[in-house]
Design a protein around this nucleic acid. Sequence first.
DNA 1: CATGAATGAGAGTTCATTCAT
DNA 2: GATGAATGAACTCTCATTCAT
Lengths: 200, 200, 200, 200
Amino acid sequence: MSQVADSKGSRAETASAKRQRLMISAAQVVHQQGVERTTIADIARAADVPVGNVYYYYKTKDDLVAAALTEHARQLGLLTDRLDQLPDPRERLKGLVAAWVSQGDLAAQYGCPTGTLAAELDKRAEGGLDVAAGKVIRLLLDWVERQFRDLGQPDPDGLALTLVGAYQGMSLLTNALRDPTVMTREGDRLIAWLDSLPAR
Amino acid sequence: MSQVADSKGSRAETASAKRQRLMISAAQVVHQQGVERTTIADIARAADVPVGNVYYYYKTKDDLVAAALTEHARQLGLLTDRLDQLPDPRERLKGLVAAWVSQGDLAAQYGCPTGTLAAELDKRAEGGLDVAAGKVIRLLLDWVERQFRDLGQPDPDGLALTLVGAYQGMSLLTNALRDPTVMTREGDRLIAWLDSLPAR
Amino acid sequence: MSQVADSKGSRAETASAKRQRLMISAAQVVHQQGVERTTIADIARAADVPVGNVYYYYKTKDDLVAAALTEHARQLGLLTDRLDQLPDPRERLKGLVAAWVSQGDLAAQYGCPTGTLAAELDKRAEGGLDVAAGKVIRLLLDWVERQFRDLGQPDPDGLALTLVGAYQGMSLLTNALRDPTVMTREGDRLIAWLDSLPAR
Amino acid sequence: MSQVADSKGSRAETASAKRQRLMISAAQVVHQQGVERTTIADIARAADVPVGNVYYYYKTKDDLVAAALTEHARQLGLLTDRLDQLPDPRERLKGLVAAWVSQGDLAAQYGCPTGTLAAELDKRAEGGLDVAAGKVIRLLLDWVERQFRDLGQPDPDGLALTLVGAYQGMSLLTNALRDPTVMTREGDRLIAWLDSLPAR
DNA sequence: CATGAATGAGAGTTCATTCAT
DNA sequence: GATGAATGAACTCTCATTCAT
């Protein structure tokens, strides 16, 4: 089986490889430049794919943006999978906050990838991309809510909103103020808050 | 006296009136559509000004965006001036939250005007508009910090970040999830939090 | 009569003063920037006349360019009048060359005012300004030809072409090469040439 | 062989062919209309290329002007290469003058392509196109200087300035006066002058 | 499948000219 | 006459999308 794959892959690369490279590049470039300021050519260049070839994998620019959202969801899944290894839900949530803060460099410069994308996509009615962005955020909310529920907290739904909202807010402020310490200060506060919650 | 004013105003309007109309329209349209998806023609139409004439008042599109920021700062100033009438700083802060929630309709649809603008402008280095957006947010932060200080709270700076961050976060989530109740639920939580703070 | 003029001029300036200022400014600014890159606003600013007021004196931009040509003709007249004081036609011609070279600073930076203007206006068929530019150059040619005739030279017409052509050529080269010494070197050569011509 | 070429060329043409067509058209149209009065659409039409496609080959209008300069330099090179076949440097110079005069039709209507271009570009500081124009003129000067040196003349540099300056001057006068005979008359004079120079 | 090239619909901006007081 | 403001046509440039090989 691998022989067949190799025989194909030795010269031409698999189609899915290009698709994936485009998806990852779309996620990165759109995160840094925003949807409107990103051209197809930007993404093509970042993915090292000829411009004319992009359309083979993604019919429209919106398809590429949707792919960027999918990629963000995938990366979120990787993170939560890793955190799910931890036995204690409180530790999982603290791990999430720690991850946010540690990613600080990029997030401090360009904000939360999903959040800024959602904010930009919300400003357009057509295409339904706004809804897609909401779904990714919902994934995060659901996971967080599950942890609060496991912790035995009342109103896990509301707590999830609070925690994720705090993350979005501190990301935005870090950016707007161009002050990375906002991220760490608010991160510490969230950790302390999580610690202060009674068990069960 | 007003007759004289009217007789003048019936045909021609003061130059600053048009400037102001453009500024307000810029603030509104940019809030709803975002900077990149807003054309000069959009703003001109909203202000009922011929496209070519816009440039008499604002040399570039960026100038118009800066004007939109100024307008948001002005509206923030109106709000805080009104709240400053209240004797108790805690009531002022609760009034702020109430204002946020009550504005819900618009904010729920398009997010916090300054916050979403800041997020979009952060993605471009040139022009310094990103810094300008930060300054408007700083105005809000400073006012909030002052209230916490008047309340005798320790770390008023940090508390301001938390409150404003929560506002930005809940605005974004309200939008992304297309769920206006997020705004009210989080608003209630913030009110309760403010009430729970010890005096002095 | 002068009283009336004064009574008018004491507060408001005479209309012709503004006209003249516009004419002079047009000549200067057009010399430096070229016709196409000069806006009415540029000339108005240089003449310290409100933009809207320019059209009182000059109905179109072309009228202003025509005025610039007239101004150049006037300045040429001043020069030749001065040179006409000299008794010897050879000295008059040498004085002309000396004047060209001494004006070097400006001409080296922007070329011969009339020549560059003629070159630019030649590229458009409409308006007849090209012909007007030719007439100014013809004024110079005629004066030079008269000197050669007074000198008793055969073919004074051809000699005039040669001398004026040399001036235009050296102005252009000085500019194109950004080398002011071209002007002085060629000027010296022309002086020597004039000296070498036999009298009568 | 040509059949194969034709079968390829019948539909698609080589990319460089379009580039070249644009370059040649730019040179022609700019020569006739001047830089400022030439629009990208003018050049596109002359080259039979859709407007939007021009930018695939030349990023800006200035790039197109630069290409026009290059084209003029190329045509100058073709001319001097041809003249270089002649054994006698004096004949080469006379051939150059003859070429100038014979081109008279076009040059009489629009002036020396490089000279008028240089004059127009000199009026703008930005972009460095002015310097580029100077370089093309320098090419001509250098070639002429070489001929004078081969002729054993003292000060070949100065003689080159004189000859090329005379060419620029007579081109300009021919235009300004709308009198093609200026070209021929001055051309004859230059030929006579070259003949009068002592050998060695 | 791959790819350079093509296309055309706007977008921002400038500016000569005109208007209204 | 004087003046700030108004107007609209034109221009340069961008870019998502499609085409032809």
